[in-house]
Design a binder for these strands. Sequence first.
DNA 1: AAAATTTTTAATCAAATGATTAAAAATTTT
DNA 2: AAAATTTTTAATCATTTGATTAAAAATTTT
Lengths: 208, 208
Amino acid sequence: MSASASEKKDSTTEEKIKTAAKTVFYKKGFAATRTRDIAEEAGLNLALLNYYFRSKAKLFEIIMAETFSGFIGSMKVILDDEKTSLEQKVITIAKRYIDFISVEPEIPTFILTEIRNNPEELLKKLPIKEIVNDSVFIKQFQEAIQNKEITEPNPLHFLMNLLGLVVFPFIVKPIIMGSRNLETEQFDALMQERKKKIPIWINMMFKA
Amino acid sequence: MSASASEKKDSTTEEKIKTAAKTVFYKKGFAATRTRDIAEEAGLNLALLNYYFRSKAKLFEIIMAETFSGFIGSMKVILDDEKTSLEQKVITIAKRYIDFISVEPEIPTFILTEIRNNPEELLKKLPIKEIVNDSVFIKQFQEAIQNKEITEPNPLHFLMNLLGLVVFPFIVKPIIMGSRNLETEQFDALMQERKKKIPIWINMMFKA
DNA sequence: AAAATTTTTAATCAAATGATTAAAAATTTT
DNA sequence: AAAATTTTTAATCATTTGATTAAAAATTTT
C-alpha cells in the first residue's frame, strides 16, 4: 500500500516516520498534511510522531533541513569545483539535477512553496549568498566576461536560465503531461533529452 | 493597513471579500489560509464569507477559476493569433507575461501549488490540450521545422523553455533576492531586462 | 413612515487536528 | 527470570477552524 521513494534503512520506527513524513510533506506541503496522514503512511500509531519528534513542526523542520542540504549542498560542490570549467559545470548541473529530481520529482515544488510560506525563516538558514558569491563559478564567469567568451554580464541571468531550464519542467509536470496526454515514462524521456540539450542551449544563449 | 493589489471596484462587500480572498489565497495557498484571515484582511465579519459564498471551498473555486482564465486565457489569445509570426508571439508572451506577473507576483507559485494539490480536478477544467494542440502556434512551429528555420522538433521543449525563462525567476524570487541582497525594485528591473532578452535567447537557442 | 427585505453581527456549534497521558507490551539490563 | 527501561497503544484533551443561527441593523419597497 504505502510505498514511497526511499525504502532502504526503514528499520527503526524513527526512520519509518521520517520516510513517511517526507512522502506526505513533499506531496501536500506543511499546512495540508495531517499528522494522522503521516502516521497512516508509516503504518504506525499517531502518538509515536510526538514521542520521537515532539511536534509536527519539529518533524517538518528536520525533513526540510535534510531536503535543503541535499539540494543546495550538491549545488555548492559543483559550483565550487576548481577543476571543472564553466561549460563542464553546466553539463554537470543539468545531468545531476535532472537525475536527482527525476527520483523525487516533488522536491522542487515542495521547496518553492515552503520558501514562499516562510521566506525569512528558511532563507536565513541557507547561506545562498555565500554559495553564489564566493564560488569558483562566479570567478570563472567574470573571467569569461573579461575574455569576451560570454556576452551576458549578469551571472543571475545565467543561473536563472540554467536552473529554469532544468527545474521548471518538473514544476509544471502535471500541465505538461495533461497538455499532450503523456505517460510518466514519456515525461521522463523528455527530461533525459534535456540533459543533453540544456548545455547546448546554454552555450547558444551565452557564448559570444 | 490591509491593502492589496486590486483596489478598484471594492465597493460591494462581495467584492471586498473576493479581493481579500485573492490576497490571502495567493500568499498562503488554500490549506494554510483560515477563513478568519480573509475576513480580517477584508475588515469584515467572518459570517459574511459564508453568507455570500457558502463555503471556503466555493470561494476558493471562484478565485481559482478567475485566476486561471486570466492566466491561460491570454495565452490562448496570443498563441492563436493568425496575424503574428512565431517570433512575434515569443516577443508578446515575454512582454505581456512579465508585465502581468510583475503586478501579481504570487500567481505562478499559487497556480503551481494548487495544481499539485489537485491535478485531476483542476486540469480537467482547463482545455490545455486544445489550447496547445489546436493553436496557430503549433501550426507555425511545424511549418518552421519543415522550412528548417528551427532545429528542435518538439514544441514542448520550445514552450517549456520560453515559459521557464519567463516564469521561473518569479517562482524563485525570494531566493534570487536573498542571494544578492536585492530590493524589489532591483528584481523588477531584472525582469524588465528579460523582456528584451528572452526573445533573443529563444532565437539563439532554436533558430537554425 | 410602516412593512418587508437584505445585510451584518455576536455567539455558538461541531468536526478536525495536534498533542498528551496512563496503561500495556516489548525489550534490555541486572 | 526478575526488575528496569523503552516502546507502543488506545483513549482523551484542548485548540483551532469552518460553518450556522438568531437577533440586530441597515436598506428597500410599499
